[in-house]
Each structure stands twice: as C-alpha cells, then as structure tokens.
Design a protein around this nucleic acid. Structure first.
Length: 863
DNA sequence: TCTGCGTGCGCG
DNA sequence: AAAGCGCGCACGCAGA
C-alpha cells in the first residue's frame, strides 16, 4: 500500500463525518425553528412584514431604553456643528439590526440573495429570500429589495450591522443607497477591546454569551461553516439559511444592546463611539468605493523610462565589478559553503553506490541467459546508468551554487561589499538595532559611496526596483470593475487607518444590468467563481512623494473627467495636540502660545534652545549657507525625539550627523525641559496613568490598552528595589543592573525594561497620534456630510492628517476652498488654533495654492 | 508550491 | 544588557 493511501482514506472519512455532522445540525436547526423567526419566500407576504417593521418603529418611540440610546446617537458635537451650517443629520427614530446573505465576498461584484433583520421590541426576526439556487419558490428580487429600499435609505431609521462596511458595499452593488448605518457591532467591539483575537460575530457572541442575558444563553453557537461548510448560503434552502440568518441578527441585537450599555458604563467609551466611530462605516465605505482614476498612459510611460534607468544602473554596477566564475565560486562558498559541501559529499556517495550497483549488475548480466526477461532488464538498467551518469560532485553542480550575481539579494551585496571589497562594516554606527551587522541598506551604503564610487548605482537600483515592483507594474493590474484603483482601510492600535490591497473575484464577472430575469443565472456565476483569487487595490498611503522619481507616480493619480482635486492637510497637528495637552492639563501655555501667535514654533524654540538668533534658525539660513547647522530641523527632530521617547544618546547621534557639536546638542536637549516644563510633566503623568489603569486614551476617550503592563511594571519595581535602582530613570541603572546575582534575574530585568519602555513610549504616543487621528476623522465626517452628500464631491483619500475630494469644476470656487479650510480648522476646537494647507490639484501632488488658481477658468493662473 | 521570517523601504 | 511612534509590501531565503 502506497504511503499516501491511508492518508487519503483518512481525509475522506473525516470529510464524510463532517458532512454527516452538518446534515445533523441542519436537521436540528430546522426542527427547533423558533416561532418568532419568519422566513419570507412569497412576495405577497412582504407588505405584512413591512407593517411589523412600522409597528416596531412606533413602539421604539415610546420605549425608555431606546429613547435614551437615540439621545446618544443624536447628541454629538459633529451633529451640532453640521446643524449650524444648515446640514441636518436627522434625529434618530429607530434602531434595528440587519444582515445580508450574499453570493460571495467581493465587495464590488457580489450581490445579496437575501436579507434578515431583527425587531427588538416585537422580539421577532425576518429573512427575505430571493437569490437561492435551489429552484424553490422565493421572492422576486426587485420586490424584495423594493419594500426595504425606503427604509434602508432613510437616515433617521438607523441600522446596526456586524462589519457594516461589507453590507454597505453589497447593498450598493444591489443598487440601494443605504443611509443611517450608524451602529457596527464589530467597530463597537474594537472600541471595547481592540485586542480581541477574533472580531467575527459568532466568536464574540460565544465568548460574551454569559453577559448577554438568558435569551443568549439558550442560543446555539453554530457557525456558518458548521452549517454550510465553505459553500455559499445561496446553494441551500431558504428555510435553513433563513433561520441561520435570523439567528445572526438576533445575536447581533443581543450583542448590540449589551455593547451600548457597556460603552455607556465604561470610562469615556461612549464618547469615543458616539462622537466619532458611529459615523465611520459610511464614510469609510464612501472613500474606499470612490478610489482613484489612474492615468495609465502616463504610468506606462513612466514604467518604460524607469525600466531603462534600472537596466542602466544595473549595467553600470556590474561593469564596474568583475563578476567572473572565480567571484561566483568564492561567493557561493562563502554564502552557501556548508550546503554545497554537504551536497558534494552526498553526491559522491550516490556515485559510489551507483558504481557499485553497476559493477554488480554487470557481473550478473554476464552470467544471465540472453533469452530471459532478467537479461533484458539488466541490459536496460546498465545502458541507462551508463548513458546518464550522475553529475560530478563539484560545487558548480550543487543546487545551491550561485550562478548569477543578484542585485536584489542582500547576501550577495554584503558579500561583495564586506568580503570581496573588504569595506569596514559601519552598520552599528548607523542603524538603531545593535544586533545587526553587514547591512546593505541605503543609509549604510551612502557612507560607503565616498570611498567606493562604483557602488553608487546601487542607490538607483533599489529606488527604481521599489517604484517599479511596488507601484508602477502593480497598479495597472490592480484596478477594480470600475477601472479605478481602490484600497481597503483598517483601524490600527492608535485609531489611525492603515491601507492595503485586497483580493477579489475576476473583474469580468461584473454585470452592469441585473434584472429579475437574469438575476439567478448571474448569482450562479458569482457563486461558482473562486473567492479572493485576483489581487486588487494597493496600500494608498505609501504612494511615493519624497523624491522626484516617486512624485511622478503620485502624479498618475487623477480626478475624474470634469473634476479637480481639492486636498488639505492639517499643519503640524501632533505638536499642536501636545501643546493643547500641555496647556489644558499641565498649565504650560508656552507651546500653545507660539501657535496662537502664528509663529513657526520650531524656529522659536530653536532660537531658545540653541541660543541662536531667530534669523539663523530658518531653513533659508541653512540652505543659503549663511549657517552650517540646520537649527529648525534639529529642533523638529527634538520634538519628535521627545514625543516618541527617543533616548538622549540617539538624539545626540543624529544631531551630530547634522553638523552640531555633541556639547551643543546635549545642552539644547537639556534646555528643552527648562523652556517647556509641561512637556516632561505631560509625559510623566501619562506614564503614571498607564501604571494605574494599564491603558491611555485620546482626547475623545478612545483607548489603547497595554495588556500585562501593570503586572510587569510591578515586577520590575521589585527587581529594581532589590538592586537599589531608584527608578527607570536612575542614571546608574546600567551599572547597578550588574548587582543582580544570577543571569536569569539579569535577563528578566532587561526584558522587563524593554517591554515596559516599549509600552510607555507607545502609550504616550497614542494620546497624541490617536487624538490626531480623531481630529482628522471628525473632519472626514463633516466633509462626508457637507461635501459629499450635500454637494456631490467625490471623497478620494484619507491619509493620517490629510484628506482629498474631487470637486466638479463648476463648484471649484473660492468659497469651496474656504469651506474646505473651515472643515479642517474649525470642526475641532483646541487650546491652540488649528491650521491647514489646502491645495488645488489637477493631478495628485501637482499642487496650486488658491492664489495661484484661476477660479474663473478652472486652471492655474497663467497656464 | 506554499508559508513564515528577516531585511529593506514606501508613507504619515 | 534599553532607550523613536504608527503602518503594508516586495524580495530572498529556508523549511516543509
């Protein structure tokens, strides 16, 4: 029996058992269908269903819990702000829980084939079926969607979903224009516990079941997979899918109710959720669905030019070095010697063995009878062995032997630089990570260019390889069904967004005109297509901009025909937030005052900290050669260093690289705390809060928790006491750490120092970076309502401290720019004024300030 | 052929 | 024997 067979039999058995289990579960679920679950498969029942929805809405008006909750949704700063501007977010009148069952997971292509909703006060749920492929009787798609269209599109009847962005996309694919999607139990859970391993509805429900009341306790935990395996629900009967779908919204309701109550009870979490987060699913969906038009012609052109440049740089590099057989031999032995030698030995043994066999069979062959089968077999074997001798056991034949110098291989480059050329390794002087050596990164290489001119093309090689590989060659293949480039936004630990590519179904599955007649046939296509097979979209937040070559890539992002970009970034938002905290919480107004006076705070503090005239602290003074130390940059570095908790030595090191003496750098560093005493107070108080509670929060109460910090800090205190260390800032910490008697204890000590230090830096940073994210989110929310919904501007981008819309050219006026400025600077009020830089862009990064723009002709002045 | 990791680099 | 925050992606490499 071949080895694979038992495995295969085992697999089949397991599969069969799983299938039987699923069948049993399905039978269970059908048998125990609750009386208050209603599966609708007949158009004539739809009106009665909607009547129940109306009844629920009526009941909620009079219910105390709901009225209190509506206030939470309604009573927000952003709503008041919008109201002042004549933009009304209608007052909330009801809250129901919804879900869609779909043909798949592609956010631009897939469609719903059923929806479910839960009516909390009536305590009943509905599932409407129209896309099932079982041939059974079901509702007509247009009727099923038609009856809920108005409700789904009403902003005052708010809907809760679990992962609302997905359902919003599906509903928009269905041709609906959903509004009032204002609760997302997945988002809410992120606010309650961002460390949750799994944010799916089922795992959350199972985990928190005991807190959700007796109704929850009685419910089973079957997951989608438990019932349907990996298949689409559209392949199953509406009855079973319906029960499952209703159970989902039922669970969703229990979770939603508990979450709202918990948000209210816990610290400031209701603020984080209701002031900001409740609005974001719609805003995010709008941004990610809008995407970017790409100037493909220009991108292709750029690709051609850069490919040529890359080839040239590679040639220049290789021409300078004699990469001959000898070089490759030495490199192979240096990098892969062990594996190559190993192979040679094994190969020699194989050869010896074959020779032995050959000799043996030749002897047998001599004796064999030519008429026998054995004779023929031996003959064939000997002939084959003699005509196909095993390759020689020399290094050049080993699979690991390197036959070509690869400029993308760090190992190859390191061999060339450190072994072949014998350049002295300065990695440790340049990079932060002390454990590293033989680095071939840009910053290290730059230092070698001076003595080894021929290495210079390497800088171009990595530049063009990055641009071509990550952007230029990727983007044309990553466009979605609308021909645009999209992205997926996620929330990270501080509350910022991250952006990434995503995978979907092939674009040719997209069908523009779906009718009741072709719907099921189309669903059949969608269901049978492989999920997540085609890479689409990119990270939109790291499109190059810091050098000309990269900038050219950004310039291929263009507004749609007849529109122009209007973009704005918040100027120095993080320093302003630091200044705000220092002023409001710690009574140090110095920093805030510089912003109020409209001064360049880095120049102001540069002058104070380094004892230099203001005039000498400008960028201009440095660039013009008036002075050879970039004081403004240095000061900016220092604020960053302080904000991220950088060590003094590390700051001094980079400062010295900028041309200042070590003494002056240290003096400036020390003076920082004299001039801005509130800064270190702010940092220390934040640490104290972290030590007490294990988390920190943004100005809007959005938490970041640091699991394990409190315990580990406590343990560290015990160890520090033991060694006579006064605290983490004891200047003799290193010296005193030698007092630990055992290596184990010393290791533990340093591990704790590293861990707690990491938490502390992240925790302080969170209060600033996270608040910055909140400020921009509020700007985004306001501009979603005021620009996108009210004025029809496309919402293309959010990028940490900036956002971008596309404005129809006939709307691009001075007033439009003023509105955008107002959104950026007056949506949020801090102890420091906010400032922004608003630009008009015919292409991304082809920027014109409003003074440079001819609003009458919608083009740059003088163009 | 897939997966996980290290290194390096794009962005704020 | 520590000491700059927050990300995602491409590539080489090693092991399965």
């Amino acid at each position: 029996m071949a080895k694979a067979e038992p495995v295969e039999i085992g697999r089949r058995l397991h599969e069969k058992e799983e299938a039987e289990k699923r069948t049993q579960r399905i039978a269970d679920v059908l048998e125990n269908k609750p009386k208050n679950y209603h599966v609708i498969t007949d158009d004539s029942k739809l009106d009665a269903m909607i009547e129940r929805l109306r009844e629920e809405v009526r009941l909620q008006q009079k219910d105390e819990w709901f009225r209190r909750v509506f206030d939470l949704f309604n009573d927000t700063l952003i709503r008041r702000k919008l109201s002042e501007r004549g933009i009304e977010i209608p007052l909330v009148k009801s809250l129901t829980v919804w879900d869609t069952e779909t043909s798949g997971l592609d956010k631009m292509i897939d469609l719903s084939g059923g929806y479910s909703f839960w009516l909390p006060l009536l305590n009943e749920g509905y599932y409407v079926a129209y896309g099932h492929l079982t041939g059974e009787a079901q509702c007509t798609r247009s009727k099923a969607l038609g009856v809920i269209r108005r409700f789904i599109e009403m902003a005052d009847h708010i809907k809760s979903f679990h992962n609302a962005e997905y359902d919003l996309n599906i509903m928009r694919n269905d041709g609906l224009k959903p509004a009032g999607v204002r609760f997302d139990s997945q988002d809410a859970h992120w606010i309650l516990n961002e460390h949750e391993k799994s944010h799916g509805l089922k795992p959350l429900f199972t985990k928190y079941k005991s807190m959700l009341g007796p109704e929850a306790a009685a419910m089973d935990d079957y997951t989608f997979e438990d019932l349907f395996g990996n298949e689409s629900p559209m392949m199953y009967d509406s009855e079973i899918v319906g029960i499952y779908a209703i159970k989902d919204v039922h669970k969703g309701w229990l979770l939603t109710k508990w979450q709202i109550d918990t948000l209210v009870k816990t610290d400031d979490l209701a603020r984080a959720y209701f002031e900001i987060r409740q609005y974001l699913p719609e805003v995010n969906t709008e941004i990610t669905r809008t995407g970017f038009v790409i100037d493909l012609g220009r991108l292709r052109q750029l690709g051609e030019v850069y490919s040529a440049e890359l080839e040239k740089a590679k040639r220049d590099f290789l021409d300078a070095y004699d990469i001959d057989d000898n070089f490759l031999y030495n490199m192979s032995m240096a990098l892969k010697g062990d594996r190559i030698r190993d192979w040679c030995e094994k190969q020699q043994r194989r050869i010896d063995k074959q020779a032995e066999m050959l000799a043996k069979r030749k002897a047998e062959f001599k004796k064999a009878n030519p008429t026998t089968k054995k004779y023929a077999q031996l003959k064939e074997w000997i002939e084959r062995a003699e005509s196909n001798p095993l390759i020689e056991p020399i290094p050049q034949n080993a699979p690991d032997y390197i036959t070509e110098f690869n400029l993308s291989s760090n190992d190859h480059l390191a061999y060339l630089i450190y072994d072949h050329l014998g350049i002295k390794d300065i990695t440790k002087q340049v990079v932060k990570d002390k454990s590293r050596s033989r680095a071939v990164s840009k910053d290290v290489l730059e230092r070698y260019f001076e003595r080894e001119e021929s290495l210079k093309p390497l800088a171009k090689v990595s530049l063009y390889e990055k641009l071509l590989g990550t952007y230029i060659e990727k983007i044309p293949d990553a466009l979605d069904v609308d021909g645009r480039l999209h992205t997926e936004l996620n929330t990270v630990s501080t509350g910022r967004y991250s952006s990434k590519g995503y995978k979907g179904k092939p674009n040719d599955l997209f069908r523009e005109n779906v009718t009741d007649d072709n719907f099921l046939e189309h669903i059949r296509c969608l269901v049978s297509a492989k999920e997540k097979s085609v890479p689409k979209g990119t990270n939109i937040q790291n499109i190059p901009s810091r050098n000309d070559e990269g900038l050219a890539v950004r310039k291929t992002f263009i507004p749609r025909e007849g529109y122009t970009y209007l973009g704005s970034d918040l100027s120095s938002i993080e320093p302003r937030l630091q200044a705000h905290r220092m002023s409001v919480e710690f009574g140090d107004d110095t920093f805030a005052e510089t912003f109020r006076k409209g001064l360049d705070s880095y120049i102001e503090f540069a002058s104070m900290m380094f004892d230099v005239d203001r005039e000498l602290c400008t960028e201009k003074a440095y660039k013009s050669g008036l002075i050879n130390i970039p004081y403004r940059k240095l000061t900016k570095d220092m604020f960053l260093a302080k904000g991220y908790g950088q060590a003094e030595d590390q700051f001094v090191k980079t400062a010295v690289q900028r041309g200042i003496t070590e003494e002056a750098a240290r003096a400036g560093y020390a003076k920082f705390d004299v001039i801005l005493p509130g800064f270190s107070k702010m940092v220390q108080e934040t640490f104290a809060h972290l030590r007490k509670y294990g988390w920190t929060a943004t100005l809007w109460g959005q938490k970041r928790r640091f699991p394990g910090y409190i315990e580990k800090y406590r343990r560290l205190c015990v160890l520090m006491k033991k060694a006579g260390i006064k605290g983490k800032d004891d200047p003799e910490l290193g010296k005193k750490s030698r007092r630990f008697r055992t290596q184990v204890e010393r290791n533990e000590f340093w591990d704790l120092i590293r861990f707690t230090g990491g938490c502390e830096r992240s925790a302080f940073n969170h209060t600033i970076q996270g608040s910055g994210a909140n400020v921009l989110q509020l700007c985004m929310i306001r501009s979603y309502y005021e620009c996108t919904l009210a004025r029809g501007w496309e919402f293309n981008l959010t990028l940490h401290d900036e956002q971008k819309h596309s404005v129809p050219n006939d709307q691009l006026t001075e007033e439009a720019v003023e509105l955008y400025d107002d959104i950026m600077t007056n949506t949020v009020q801090l102890a420091t004024p906010l400032a922004c830089d608003t630009v008009i862009e015919p292409r991304w990064m082809e920027e014109y300030s409003p003074d440079e723009w001819d609003f009458n002709n919608c083009k740059p002045k003088g163009a």
